[in-house]
Design a protein around this nucleic acid. Structure first.
Lengths: 349, 349
DNA sequence: ATTAGCACTCGGGGTTGATGAGTGCTAATA
DNA sequence: TATTAGCACTCATCAACCCCGAGTGCTAAT
């Protein structure tokens, strides 16, 4: 069995470095010339032959240089990679710019996806805050017209829902206030996902006792009303055309089309992000065929979860070619997650 | 001076037909073979030479067939083209599908852009309803917290604005109602763009007289409050990747990138649509270099204005290669505009 | 006015051969 | 025993080249 020596590691790292920069298979001579390993190209040839046998490298065809395999990238990412420190100045510049432009939650998400794609030069994905995980703060009901009521729901994410609902019967202003007061009392401090069927039906019963309602007629108290009607969480995309800069797509319009079409399908993007559990904190990297979707098996994804009040509420990610500048992307995703968390916390004070 | 004979028209039309379908320069022989003009290819050669001299055709290079010039397309569109009648069934199918999926104004716009790009196979642009042109129906103010007020504005486009505003001083519920009542009385039936500085400041004065406000402290009454704070009208895009199907983009990643990047710039799209005045009703076609933007001088745009209550409130458009299937696109844009108008009118009843 | 015929043009596609980067193996070397 | 030099062999790429087909424009005949 072949062993992973220090020299092999150095060579593997160098090969990945080169390949990430040039997108060309890297041969032994170039390597010997450009890096100073203190050995000749012949030795490197022997080493790379070993690395290939071990599955860390592969050849696109006979008599070409080597390129990293998924396993090679995985090893690199897990053990070899050194994160790129982003300078304090740059960090601050980013943070300030971010804060300056993003005031409301919508803008924050927008900004995040723009920033991610701009900084990484890849495509960014941002899943907007999952309202189910936010805390119920206050519900207000206002009479508008005959049977028309404006419902306003405020959670720790801010004003997340206001819509006009139609009641089955006319209610007086004081009746409305009674309903709201009651709901507020019982629901305050829960997350929206904790407001389940059982709880709602018990609330409905209590209300029916106090006011004379027709049972089952108050849609507001139907299961999932608090959850589903907030509109499903949206996915924001940034820098989709950045993939056109990748040399692997040159002269392959078909490949470009496949990927761009995929990116237009929200359902697909959601699936990608859904493969990372919300519980997972920190960065998660998915390399090439490690992801479950045939269409992007030449891509890697770097994702992270962002939080509010200690609860994960959304995800961000960067999608690029397997041949990705991992240290750079990981540093940026980490930084952006941190800033995003701070921003959300501040907004919520 | 050369004259435009009937035969020349027939030939020009045939050339445009062919070129639209094949994207290849069309030569005299192919033409003679495929269409039955009752003359030989030599005659056609003479005619096409004339048409070229008149500026309706051009040659991509010596010894290739002819392709239509912008002027040729213009003539075709203005005089030669016969609109494609869309079958009643298909029309109905489209309309039903449309109505089924689009309930709220947002969804309608979304649907429109999807439908346009799906039906035409080109890229669609939809400018959302211009809130400035909608009618003020009703304003409501609800006290939320200390100094926090929820403002709800309803126009003929529906609920177009509800946001939390912060007042400079605490107001009682009855005072709020007084303000709302007063505004409603004075503003009802106006369009938002008619609510100008003068009107607002006179309102403010009246209110200051009745209640004891600090002058200039009520942001609500600042000029443009009703107009600018509704968020600028958004542009919706559909089928951006459809342009990748156009053979003229094959093997020209760079061209693709230019166009896709352009399409990502909302400002640019807005400019494109802004070149059509709102007053213009019916279809407007802009061919190739007729449009003012270098970046899309190989494209044509077919646009139309949609209306509510007899007022133009938004625009839709289709962007494709100059070599566009005009009859088809124009028919579709006409149909979609009509259905959209009906839909909006229905919603407003 | 129309057509047939012919010389000429040009782009696209296929072939070929040189080039260069690379590998793998073997034998010599430290 | 690990390293290196040297050599034969393999491919991909690219430019040069040629040929073919489709097309035009002109002229002379109908």
């Amino acid at each position: 069995m072949l062993e992973m020596t220090e020299r092999k590691k150095k060579i593997l790292k160098a090969i990945i470095n080169e390949y990430v920069m040039t997108a060309e298979p890297v041969g032994s001579r170039t390597l010997a010339r450009r890096y100073d390993f203190g050995v000749s190209s012949a030795t490197i040839r022997n080493e790379t032959a070993d690395l290939e046998a071990m599955g860390y490298l592969k050849k696109p065809h006979k008599s070409a240089g080597r390129i990293p395999s998924d396993k090679g990238y995985r090893f690199y990412v897990d053990t070899l990679m050194e994160l790129k420190e982003i300078s304090k100045q740059k960090q601050q510049a980013i943070e300030e710019n971010y804060r300056a432009r993003a005031k409301e939650i919508q803008e924050i998400i927008d900004q995040t996806s723009d920033m991610l794609s701009e900084l990484t030069k890849y495509t960014s994905l941002v899943l907007s805050p999952k309202t189910q995980n936010s805390y119920f703060h206050k519900l207000k009901l206002f009479a508008l017209e005959e049977c028309q009521v404006l419902l306003v729901l405020i959670t720790d994410l801010g004003l997340i829902q206001n819509k006009v609902i139609t009641l089955p019967q006319r209610l007086s202003s004081s009746e409305l206030q009674e309903i709201a007061r009651h709901l507020n009392e019982k629901l305050h401090g829960l997350t929206l996902s904790e407001i389940d069927e059982e709880l709602l039906s018990s609330l409905e019963n209590e209300l029916i006792n106090r006011l004379n309602f027709l049972e089952g007629k108050l849609d507001l108290l139907k299961p999932n009303y608090f959850v589903t009607s907030y509109g499903t969480d949206k996915i924001y995309l940034g820098g989709t055309t950045n993939i056109l800069d990748q040399p692997e797509f040159n002269n392959d319009i078909h490949k470009v089309k496949t990927v761009l079409n995929i990116l237009e399908e929200e359902e697909f993007l959601r699936n990608i992000l859904d493969t990372i559990p919300y519980e997972h904190t920190g960065i998660k990297i998915t390399i090439g065929e490690e992801n479950d979707f045939e269409e992007i098996k030449d891509c890697s994804i770097v994702t992270a979860t962002y939080q509010l009040n200690g609860r994960p509420i959304g995800k961000i990610g960067v999608l690029g070619p397997t041949r990705m500048n991992y240290p750079n992307v990981v540093s940026i995703v980490e930084l952006v997650t941190k800033v995003l968390n701070d921003l959300l916390a501040d907004m919520n004070k």
